[in-house]
Nucleic acid binder design. Structure first.
Lengths: 221, 221
DNA sequence: CCCGTATATTACCCACGAGTAATAAGAAGT
DNA sequence: ACTTCTTATTACTCGTGGGTAATATACGGG
């Protein structure tokens, strides 16, 4: 069925490695199922029995992979967070104007929000995490917010974005994007990609300092 | 202290009325305390014992005013909803371009979001309501969303707003506004009014079809 | 002054679901 | 085949908190 047990491979670690991989796959399967159920029914209404049932196992089996329900919640959150942070890292590695970076981040973040793990960043209540994990989550949120703000103010500096209140502008953009996590449906009329590219244009529409926009500003001034 | 017991009033219904009013005030006090606690700790972490404690009463006393915890939640939601719907009614009663109506709604909605009851529209999980109340909440959300869409498409028709994807534009605006409910703090640097007026301008900035904007559109075309 | 109603309290119930033994089954290695 | 480690199951505990029954107290009206 698959190449998970390549008996032809003589390496004595291979069987071990393959078992580890199977384990990780199961862990991921749990997370995927859990996040779906959490999103469908809400974290508290969703029970671990329910999660287990969907996986055709029983609740205690889950405890081979996770220590507690809130740990599952946290790891769902973490996967969504990771994806966004990877996106930020990629943007930071490249170059471009503040505006182009901002657009990339908007696009990446929008795509994230259209996924289950991404939506968990905004659909779950941070109070359901342990105190320690709440701190981690807050720090993560901060880093993302900071990235947005950095790109905006960078854009203002390099002239690609017209002067604006960085904080409020960021809030407005992030808000629009977060909302995707609440209304997006995979079976809807709009694909995630379409939304992402639309938003990356639309949300920066009034922000870009084009030649034409410059003219207007000067006219007004 | 107050005129709640006007013994000078001969009307036999007056005492009754005054007691009703006291009752309603207590009901409201419960809701105010409850919504605060729900927002602080999350609906599930917050207990009715906790709510009662803050009011210097005990849990069963709450059941003189509400049938269940989720009824309290619902009424908090309803108060926030009502406020927005009042705003919509007011706008619909007056006249103006689609753009000016949209700006009024943005302003009103932003102000709402900066209040506890308004924030409850977006901070609480609809799954914590009864099936019946979920339907009511969904219908309410729909009405608000529809108002936004109506004003936008009205604006496009009357020429105050430049042609755009009504649905996505609305989502973007509503998203920005809803996000206020998550980050606004009463003791923060920005007042609710400042945010509301800022957003009413900023969110419609790229939307308004000014003469200058018209020129750009024609240039591009 | 007494009665009836509204409103509060104390003391309880109990459903629910997270988490935990105790234990069985299955595969890997020898 | 025997052992061992992993992974799963059955059957259970138990804390929590929403909700209730019985009851006390305050207050306005006759």
């Amino acid at each position: 069925m698959d190449a998970r047990h390549p008996s032809s491979d003589p390496s004595p670690w291979m069987p071990f490695a393959s078992r580890r991989r199977a384990r990780d796959e199961k862990r991921e399967a749990v997370l995927r199922t859990a996040v779906q159920l959490f999103l469908e029914q809400g974290y508290h209404r969703a029970t671990l029995n329910g999660v287990a049932e969907r996986l055709n196992i029983t609740k205690p089996a889950l405890y081979n992979y996770f220590r507690s329900k809130d740990e599952i919640l946290f790891e769902c959150w973490a996967l969504g967070q990771e994806r966004v942070e990877d996106c930020i890292a990629e943007i930071d590695a490249g170059n471009g104007t503040g505006l182009s970076k901002l657009r990339k981040l908007i696009q990446g973040y929008a795509l994230g929000m259209a996924s289950d793990f991404g939506a968990s960043l905004v659909r779950f209540n941070s109070h359901d995490l342990t105190e320690a994990n709440q701190k981690i989550a807050r720090a993560g949120k901060r880093r993302i917010d900071q990235a947005f703000r950095n790109y905006v103010s960078e854009g203002v500096k390099d002239g690609s974005i017209k002067p604006c209140d960085v904080k409020l502008t960021t809030f407005a953009i992030v808000g629009s994007l977060n909302w995707i996590g609440h209304w997006f449906k995979h079976d809807g009329a709009l694909s995630a990609e379409a939304i992402a590219s639309q938003f990356s244009v639309q949300l920066t529409d009034g922000l870009a300092k084009t030649r034409a926009a410059k003219k207007i500003t000067k006219k007004k001034a």
